[in-house]
Design a protein around this nucleic acid. Structure first.
Lengths: 188, 188
DNA sequence: TATAGACTAGACAGACCGGTCTGGTATTGT
DNA sequence: ACAATACCAGACCGGTCTGTCTAGTCTATA
């Protein structure tokens, strides 16, 4: 059987993502995890830290997922577009409820651990896109990466608000056009 | 002095938007509004309905703001791009915390009045973009409108998560390219 | 077998939740 | 002058919140 820590993270992942962090009380988390309350507080110290760990684990899993995808694609262009394929997979899942970080931040107090987790995830995402646009030899890699992040966020948000799993596919198509324009038009 | 109802909406607008709906208790709302608790419940009936009214009023104000902007622009293209100018204004405000509807939905229970308010707002936004892309004689108005909504959502989400007021400006530039491509390439 | 550490079950504290109700005041229309 | 209405202040209800603490169980190692 999994350790109490793992079971708590599993329970937090399901409940926090589905219903929101503030909405779900500690009691429901430990109940679903089948764990004593003291175990939660000895493992995480506070609800805020549990939420941070929940987000951190989601982020790690997404990093792994993206790394796997990158390994299967050859060109930088295909690697970038593969990210939107992953978003499309997420949005097609019936339990999709939007970006966990956007949702968490919507209800997080100002200096909470949740906000820190969000900032780390955002920094990683930006550097991922920048390294890929550099690899693609874009005319302005930073500017292109910023556009791609915006499309990523838009795909998530639109898919969520309209319950429309096709939004990431549209984002992918726009991204393809931006990439082609940015690499086929050298500055000279 | 404003009516209790108006004062409650003002208080709810500030507190719910800044800190989240679940996070803010009824007592803090009536406190800031300078209103008795009974007034809240006679005017709105429940916290959920107060939240719905808060969102509905934000939506009305945005409709008015957009209508004003539309009146000052001539071409459909300029009208569409003006929407991103409005988003840029919002994001430049230091109290900007992202889309109130996205935030509200992140913590709303499944069948709540908040979700209904979100759906109404989304339907209006889509029809706004579609009527403008039709007016612009786009080759595929519905498809272009869907892309523009995605850019709108992306502008909001990126500006929020990265605290980057320039995101809407990038969204505007991408939107301009999509519009030009969609109207300068007639199907024939 | 003895002991240390991890774990569970659950009582408990103090605050706060949404919502109802009572009592009193001020204003209004007749 | 009177009655109705609108509003305020705040007590109160049952329940839930996060977090602490006690007491006891299980397991592993020495």
């Amino acid at each position: 059987m999994k350790s109490p820590r793992e079971r708590l993270l599993d329970a937090a992942n399901e409940l926090f993502y589905k219903e929101g962090i503030q909405t779900v009380g500690i009691d429901r988390v430990i109940d679903r995890a089948g764990v004593a309350k003291a175990s939660l507080y000895s493992a995480f110290g506070s609800k805020d830290e549990l939420a941070r760990a929940y987000l951190a684990r989601r982020h790690e899993l997404r990093q792994i997922r993206i790394a796997e995808m990158l390994a299967t694609r050859d060109t930088p262009r295909a690697k970038i577009l593969g990210i939107y394929d992953i978003v499309a997979e997420l949005a097609a899942n019936p339990s999709f409820r939007g970006c966990a970080f956007v949702n968490a931040r919507a209800e997080a107090p100002k200096g909470s651990a949740v906000v820190r987790a969000c900032d780390e995830m955002r920094a990683w995402t930006h550097s991922l896109f920048i390294s890929l646009t550099r690899e693609a030899a874009a005319a302005d890699p930073v500017a292109l990466a910023a556009d791609l992040v915006l499309l990523y966020d838009g795909a998530m948000a639109t898919a969520r608000m309209d319950d429309d799993p096709e939004a990431p596919i549209r984002a992918k198509a726009i991204a393809a056009r931006l990439i082609d324009a940015a690499i086929s038009t050298p500055a000279s």
